[in-house]
Design a protein around this nucleic acid. Structure first.
Lengths: 240, 240
DNA sequence: CTAATCGAGTTGTATATACGTGTAAATGTA
DNA sequence: TACATTTACACGTATATACAACTCGATTAG
C-alpha cells in the first residue's frame, strides 16, 4: 500500500489514503476507524507516524477523536468550513423569507482614490459600480455599493444584476473568488442611508467594507455595505 | 521551569511559555528561536515534545519554521489570519499600543435564562461574571461582560483578572479554547454604556455576543461586548 | 438490585534515537 | 575572482517503547 521509496512522506500517504476513503464513502460519517495500533499495523508504520497522518485530517475536520474511545469520521457538519460567514440575508433566503434586490445604480466611472487603492488599480481607471438595495420581507435592510475593475468584466453590466449574486456572475466568467477581507464598524446613518433604509438619521448602522480577491490575489470587488443595525446580524465562527 | 507533577502536559506548558514570551516581547517578531535541540534541552523535554508545543503556535500563526534554517517569531502584520482566535487586546498589544483593563465586577451569581442557554447549563446554576472595561491608549474602547460556568473554574476569581486574559487562565487549568461564535450588531449606546465608554447616549456601538467553546464543544464563556463604533473595527478574513 | 470496582481497549503524552533533507556559510579549486 | 564543494547545523520524518488518562462494559461486593 504505502510506498516507502517514492520520496513522499508516509504520513502524507496515510492522510491521502484516509481522505480518499472518506470522500468516496468507504468510510462513512460517524463510523469508527480501527484503533491506531491496528491502522499502524495495517499501513506498516509506527503509531506515531500514523497519528501524524490522522492529526492533519482532524485539523481539517474530517475526523475527530474521543479519548479512550476511538477515532471517528466526522459528520458532514457545518463546522467543516471554519471560516464560514453567514449573513442575515443569506439565512433569510434559506428560511424562505421574501428577499428582493433593487438596483439603484449600474454604471462605469473612474475610480476614486480609496476604491483604486483597495482594488490595486490606478486612480481614475474605469470601474463598474453596482449599487443595490436589499429587502427582506419588503423592508430595506442593506445597501451595497460595489466596485469592480472594468477591465476584468467589461460585459458585467449586461448581466442580470437584480437576480444573480455578483460572485455567481464572476464564476460564470470562469474566475472564482477565494478570499474576502471584511472590516466591520458601527456607525450612524447619514441622510442618504437613512432615507434609503427608511430610518431616522443617526440610526445605528452596521457598516462593512469588503474586499474580495481571486485565487491569485487579484482584488476583484470592493464593496461598502450599510446594514440596518436592528435587522442585520452577522455571525462569525472562529476556530483556533 | 516546567512542572512535571502538576498534571498539565509539558507541551502545553511549553506552548504557554513561548506564547507569553512572544506577547510580552521577550521574543520579538522576526527573531530566530534557539534550535529545537537547544530549546528541548532548556525545557528539559525531548525534542518531539518540544515540537508538539511549537507546532500549535505555528498553527496559530505566531511562529513559522524554515526548513534547514530555524524557527522564527512571525511578523505581526504579515497576513496574520484574523479568522484565527486571537483576542483584540492581544493584537493591540502586539502593535505596541498601551492596553489597560479595569475590572468592574467579579462575582458569582445564578445564571439568567439567556446566559444559561448559551452556556448549556440550567437557569439559576452558578456562573462567574467578569465585567471589564478595556482601554487602549488611555481611552475606554470596549466593555466586556463575561459569564463562565462556576463548576468549570471554581477558583477563577482568585486569578489575576486584570492582567491575564481569560483564555490564558483557562489554559493554565489545562483547557484550551477552540471555537468562538460571534454575533455582531450595530446598536446605540444606552445610559450605562455611554457613561462607561465616555460617549453620548445614542452613540453607535458595535455590539457583539460571543460564545466560546472548548475542543469537545463545551461552552466555556459567554460574553456581551460593547465596542465604541469609532475606535473598534473588526476585520474578518474569509477563505473559500 | 445497586453501586463500586476492575479490566480491556483506546487515545494522550513523552522519551530516546536515527537518519533524511534543506540552508547557508566556510572552504577548496580553477 | 568565480564557482563548485564541503560541512555544520537546522528542521523533517520515522521508529519503538512506555506509561497515563479516559471510556465503557463486565464483574463483584453490599
Amino acid at each position: 500500500m504505502l510506498n516507502k521509496s517514492e520520496g513522499i512522506p508516509l504520513y502524507i500517504q496515510i492522510r491521502r489514503t484516509l481522505r480518499e476513503e472518506i470522500t468516496n464513502k468507504t468510510l462513512v460519517p460517524g463510523q469508527k476507524l480501527p484503533s491506531e495500533d491496528e491502522l499502524a499495523l495495517r499501513f506498516g508504520v509506527s503509531r506515531m507516524t500514523l497519528r501524524q497522518g490522522i492529526s492533519d485530517l482532524i485539523d481539517e475536520g474530517l475526523l475527530y477523536r474521543r479519548h479512550g474511545v476511538g477515532t471517528f469520521v466526522a459528520l458532514p457538519h457545518l463546522d467543516r468550513d471554519h471560516t464560514r460567514l453567514t449573513s442575515y440575508l443569506e439565512s433569510a433566503r434559506q428560511e424562505g423569507l421574501e428577499v428582493a434586490v433593487q438596483v439603484l445604480a449600474a454604471e462605469v466611472l473612474p475610480a476614486k482614490r480609496k476604491v483604486a487603492l483597495e482594488l490595486k488599480i490606478e486612480e481614475g481607471e474605469l470601474v463598474i459600480r453596482v449599487k443595490t438595495l436589499r429587502f427582506i420581507a419588503g423592508e430595506p435592510v442593506t445597501l451595497h455599493d460595489a466596485y469592480i475593475p472594468y477591465k476584468l468584466f467589461p460585459q458585467l453590466l449586461q448581466e442580470d444584476l437584480k437576480n444573480k449574486h455578483l460572485w455567481d456572475i464572476f464564476e460564470s466568467y470562469g474566475v472564482r473568488v477565494k478570499r474576502a477581507v471584511q472590516r466591520l464598524e458601527a456607525r450612524e446613518a447619514d441622510e442618504e442611508i437613512a432615507a434609503l433604509l427608511r430610518v431616522d438619521e443617526g440610526f445605528p448602522i452596521l457598516y462593512k467594507e469588503r474586499t474580495v480577491h481571486l485565487d491569485n490575489g487579484t482584488p476583484v470587488e470592493f464593496t461598502y455595505c450599510y446594514n440596518r443595525g436592528d435587522r442585520y446580524r452577522l455571525t462569525v465562527v472562529l476556530e483556533r
